[in-house]
Amino acid sequence: MMTLPEEEFAEVQAEAEHVRVPSRARTVAGRFFRTRQGRLGFALLASLFLLAFLGPLASPWAVTDMDFSAFMQPPSAGHWFGTLQTGTDVYAVTLRGAQKSLLVGLLVAVLSTGVAAVAGSFAGYFLGWTDRTIMWVADLLLVLPAFLILAIMSPLFTSGRWLLFVVMLALFLWMVTSKIVRGMTRSIKEREYIKAARFMGVPSWIIIFRHVIPNLASLLIVDATLNVSAAILTETSLSYFGFGIQPPDVSLGGLIADGSKTALYAPWTFWFAAGGLIITVLSVNLVGDSLRDAFDPGAGGRA
């Protein structure tokens, strides 16, 4: 082994790394898929995505189509999920809503978890005034009633500016995670490999991105997953009062809000959207919970 020429050694190493690097991801994935809960969550989520993005291709009705021969009709061969008061096809509009809800959930989660990771780790690593400033901002945002602020701002989200809504929602979701990240960073900072890197002369920001954040990955991934459902649920609540995603975009929350008024005598206007939402949140939560167990086999009791 010792007499291997350099290039050969490099090759051996590259090969070994090629095999090794995904090993942790693979173990986690293995543990994840070994649980029934994980498999179920993943299967549900995957089929929801497929349905939301490919499902509309299977139906002759588009969201904008209105069938003037069928107002408020129950599900039938022509309209699989029935129609609304306007003659809109419920199947088409539900899938469009699901698309938007899934997108909003994912984007908000990625954004807020990203902010939480950076803010929390910088605060926890540098402490002092950096910490005080960041945590003061976090406290302020915690104290501000998010629902109220988003509601007031809702007119700004009209005419396709739903991305702004995503940003605002993310702005109100990162604080708690960032506090957890901060606490964990403080303890990780005392770990010897961070000290070792510091005493080697590695700059602080590199230490944060190379050692601190990657070692919080499990927490962050789980948190991001759970933030997906938090975002979807918050959007639903806002939509109930008309403060969520604004027309012409539709979300499941908006459909539920409309449907709840007619739920008693036209259940199809309510239950498809509500059911879709419940399954989405359920599957996301299942995935998040299983991921937590997969990352940390000790936490959920010994296997």
Partner: peptide, 9 residues
């Protein structure tokens, strides 16, 4: 299941 059901629903 309960956690997945929005309050509205």
């Amino acid at each position: 299941v309960v956690l997945a059901i929005p309050t509205v629903v």
